[in-house]
């Protein structure tokens, strides 16, 4: 088996580690979200929901716990969508020519970049979990050590497949666009609806029906479902809404992510076959 994508991966990781500002900001930024947005919002939600009596018999989690899963998902989304940006810079600075003129098959470029983006998402997800628990998120409550390990692997599985999907998409956009500004514009257009039409920060139950449909097709919603299932449990309530997830529902969410990732890989593959870099 050809392992050419590992060469691309190696180089991208060198850059990730070498750019201290990039490295540190990408690690600190999700923690800041947790620290500021999470604590501020959770204080408000706690105050607003004092009138809502918890449904007896179902474990109740605070807003911080609820949104911590959303922050993992959001960070994965942003990191992955911008993960392809490096290709755009490489293309504009002529660095991609070396790779395009080499015998390396083009899908290996896609895989290499996706793999390094996925690695970054894993690192960030773990940092958010650790930091989240540190500031009071009730993750893995009452889990046995073996269960915790299993749950972390489950979260990483969801995060990994989701991030691959968006990294493929990002790579496809990067290879098709000339300017970073253009790509930035597309990214902003994409992130807004994906982020806000999801269950990352609030329940979708109160959405108008049309928006609910959108959120059901939104990969981010399915990622958040998976993370909450593994980090909090299959049956809990938060801010007055009950979340119970069956194994079937979990597998549906996973399937949506897999289908999305495959479709995005197809898109990237097609764009790369057509790409001319001189």
């Amino acid at each position: 088996m050809r392992m050419g994508f590992l060469t691309i991966y190696w180089r991208d990781m060198i850059r990730f580690v070498r750019f201290r500002t990039l490295l540190i900001s990408s690690l600190v930024q999700p923690a800041l979200w947790m620290a500021f947005f999470g604590i501020a919002m959770s204080a408000n939600f706690t105050r607003l929901t004092t009138d809502v009596p918890p449904i007896p018999g179902i474990p109740n989690v605070g807003y911080l716990t609820f949104m911590a899963a959303g922050v993992i998902a959001m960070t994965t989304l942003f990191t992955s969508l911008f993960g392809g940006m490096t290709l755009l810079f490489d293309k504009n600075w002529g660095l991609l020519r070396e790779v395009m003129a080499s015998p390396l098959p083009r899908d290996h470029i896609i895989f290499g970049i996706a793999l390094s983006g996925m690695t970054k998402s894993f690192i960030q997800a773990i940092i958010i979990m650790v930091f989240g628990i540190f500031i009071g998120a009730e993750f893995f409550m009452g889990f046995s050590p073996l269960n915790v390990i299993f749950s972390i692997l489950g979260i990483l599985l969801f995060v990994g497949i989701f991030s691959l999907g968006f990294l493929f998409l990002s790579a496809a956009i990067a290879i098709s666009f000339e300017s970073p500004e253009g790509m930035q514009g597309i990214m902003t257009l994409l992130t807004m609806p994906i982020f806000f039409a999801s269950n990352a920060l609030y329940p979708v139950n109160a959405f108008p029906p049309a928006l609910q449909v959108v959120s059901m097709g939104n990969p981010l919603t399915h990622l958040v479902n998976g993370i909450r299932y593994f980090a909090i449990g299959d049956d809990f309530q938060a801010i007055g809404v009950v979340y119970s997830t069956t194994v079937t529902e979990l597998l549906v969410s996973l399937s949506v992510l897999i289908v999305f990732a495959l479709a995005m890989f197809g898109l990237a593959w097609w764009r790369f076959q057509k790409a001319v870099v001189t």
Binding site: R11, I14, R15, R18, F19, G94, L95, R97, E98
Partner: peptide, 10 residues
């Protein structure tokens, strides 16, 4: 290549 195509940070 005509332009320098070296990654500055390698």
């Amino acid at each position: 290549f005509q332009d320098v195509t070296l990654d500055r940070d390698m």
